[in-house]
């Protein structure tokens, strides 16, 4: 297993891929490797990209990755799509926009299903970011599912959060601003050649104005036409500038703390759930308790107390 971690750190794509699978399946081997990999992570610039469906996120990421490759950076991309709550399966189609990058050895793309996590990310995403980071990627891009719900989780993991918008979604800006608009470190307005562009820009500008504290620097808004690669170098510059500005600041340290906090919580949550639901003794007890709740012999709170006290014994 140590060997796998070594190979990941050398950037071997097959090892990285296998490592990610182990992490996604929360297998015990993954834990041992992750312990090794942690010491080597923390160098990559993690960019979270979110925005509504149809905003052209995948195309934009593809172009952004190409731009970073031109600048000599190695790029990892995590593309997340929703897992069907009914079948547990998922159709992961974001790659289709990135197929031209498929054969570049310094780009690693991985598609993931949410597997039951809310908030637009997947449970294993912290691990996967760390794996790609430790494998020597300079840039790790995380694309959220983008179905319009508040995908605020991305802020926890990303050093820089990019929110992608498009003209003609005026109403939806209003409706999503509550959650998504506040998390942006950079805005990209894609499809800037579409009618309604000026209006969308104006709307975002006024929102930015509204959110910003007095005297604070305004969140940058970059117009792009991802399909044609226009505005992409400027966008990359702006993202880099954000990271540079943050580095060494108190906020940055705080931000990293929050990321590890979230990761820690996630690991504990997963381990606890595994303990309760995967092990036969507990699993049976849980079933019994549910029966009792059904028959009104017990309430869910007392049942939870009982299980937790046993687990924590």
């Amino acid at each position: 297993m140590k060997d796998l971690a070594q190979r990941v750190m050398k950037g071997d794509p097959r090892a990285i891929a296998r490592m990610i699978t182990l992490a996604e399946n929360a297998s015990p081997e993954a834990r041992e490797c992750m312990k090794v990999l942690h010491s080597r992570s923390g160098n990559a610039h993690v960019i979270g990209i979110t925005g509504v469906m149809g905003a052209g996120k995948s195309t934009l990421i593809s172009e952004l990755a190409r731009e970073y490759r031109k600048r000599g950076k190695r790029v990892g991309i995590i593309a997340i799509d929703p897992t069907s709550p009914f079948s547990g399966g998922a159709l992961l189609g974001d790659r289709i926009r990135m197929m031209e990058l498929a054969t570049d050895p310094d780009i690693f793309i991985r598609s993931m299903g949410t597997r039951g996590m809310l908030g637009g990310l997947t449970g294993a995403v912290y691990d996967v970011v760390e794996i790609l980071d430790a494998s020597g990627k300079d840039i790790v891009i995380v694309e959220t599912v983008g179905v319009g719900q508040a995908e605020v989780d991305v802020i926890k993991i990303a050093d820089t959060t990019l929110v992608v918008l498009v003209p003609g979604l005026g109403d939806s800006i209003q409706s999503i601003k509550a959650g998504i608009m506040e998390i942006a470190d950079v805005y990209a307005v894609n499809k800037a050649d579409r009618p309604g562009f000026e209006r969308t820009m104006a709307e975002i500008e006024s929102l930015v104005e509204l959110i910003a504290d007095r005297g604070e620097e305004r969140t940058p808004i970059i117009p792009v036409i991802a399909k044609e690669g226009k505005g992409i170098p400027e966008l990359a510059d702006t993202i880099d500038a954000h990271r540079k500005k943050m580095e060494g600041t108190k906020e940055f340290t705080l931000h990293r703390r929050r990321r590890y906090e979230a990761e820690l919580v996630e690991i504990i949550r997963k381990r606890l759930m595994k303990m309760i639901f995967d092990e036969d003794v507990f699993r049976d007890r849980v079933e019994d308790l549910i029966d009792m709740i059904m028959r009104k012999k017990k309430d869910p709170y007392s049942a939870a107390d009982e299980i937790l006290s046993q687990v924590l014994k």
Binding site: S87, G89, L92, I96, M99, T103, I109, S111
Partner: peptide, 26 residues
């Protein structure tokens, strides 16, 4: 997908190299 699998779709016009690289990464 409906049978519970995770399905990665490449889209059209893939070369052998693209298919294999994708299979490795995924």
């Amino acid at each position: 997908r409906d049978a519970g699998m995770e399905v990665i779709y490449t889209g059209l016009h893939q070369t052998a190299e693209m298919v294999v690289q994708t299979a490795i990464q995924e």
